[in-house]
Design a protein around this nucleic acid. Structure first.
Lengths: 96, 96
DNA sequence: GTAAATTAGTTTATAATATAAACCAAATTA
DNA sequence: TAATTTGGTTTATATTATAAACTAATTTAC
C-alpha cells in the first residue's frame, strides 16, 4: 500500500539540497545556503549526512584564497532521489 | 524557491493516515492500523496530533459492544493536504 | 599596521519528534 | 473463571532537526 520513505530524504532541508543538486551539476555551500535559507550549521550537518550516505560527494577546494566547498550528487544519490519520488506517489495519488 | 513543508504532514505515518482519509470518507482505527502497518500506540499519538490540529475529526462510538474509533478528514485537513502536495512539487520538479 | 567585520564553515548543545513498550479496560473464548 | 483478544492510551526512549556557539582565515576601515 504505502511504500516506505527513505528517512534520509524525508527531511525538508536534505530534500531541498538533493533537489538543487539533481538539476545543477554542482553547487557551492554558500549558494545552497542561500537557496534553501538554512543556517550554515544546519546545512553543514545535513550535507555531512548526505555525504556519509554516499548520496552526494563533497569537494573542499579554494576559490582564490577562500575555502570553497562544492557538492555534487552521486549516481547512488540520484537513484535514491528517484526512488523517494516514486515512493511518495503512493501517498499522494491514493487513487492512482 | 522551496516552499515550506507543513511539519504536521511531513511525517510518514501522518501522511499515510491523511492519504487514506482523503480517498475514504471515513476509516476505523484498526483499518488504518492495518493499512499503514503502524503500532497502535504510534497510531494513537499521530491521530491525536492530526485531530488537535483540526485536520481530522475523531468519533468514538461503538460497534455492537466494542469500542470503535472512526476518523474523518475535515475541510481544513483537505486544504492542508493539497497545500502540502503543492509545496512538495517545488522539491520534486526542480525544472518545472 | 592593526582592530573590526566578514566569509566559510564545524562542533556541540538543545528542543522537538517519532516510535514502541508498557499499560488499562472490556469482551470473548477455552 | 482463567486466559486471550480487541481496542485502544499513556509514557518512556531514542532519534532527529536545528540553531547557538565556536574556529580560522580574509578583507575592510581607520
Amino acid at each position: 500500500m504505502f511504500q516506505p520513505l527513505d528517512p534520509l530524504l524525508h527531511s525538508e532541508l536534505r530534500l531541498a539540497i538533493m533537489s538543487l543538486l539533481i538539476s545543477a551539476d554542482e553547487a557551492e555551500f554558500p549558494y545552497i545556503k542561500e537557496q534553501t535559507g538554512a543556517t550554515a550549521g544546519n546545512l553543514s550537518v545535513q550535507v555531512e549526512k548526505l555525504s556519509a550516505a554516499g548520496y552526494i560527494e563533497v569537494e573542499k577546494t579554494f576559490k582564490g584564497k577562500r575555502p570553497c566547498t562544492i557538492c555534487r550528487i552521486t549516481p547512488k544519490g540520484q537513484e535514491a532521489f528517484e526512488a523517494y519520488v516514486q515512493a511518495l506517489r503512493s501517498y499522494l495519488q491514493p487513487k492512482g
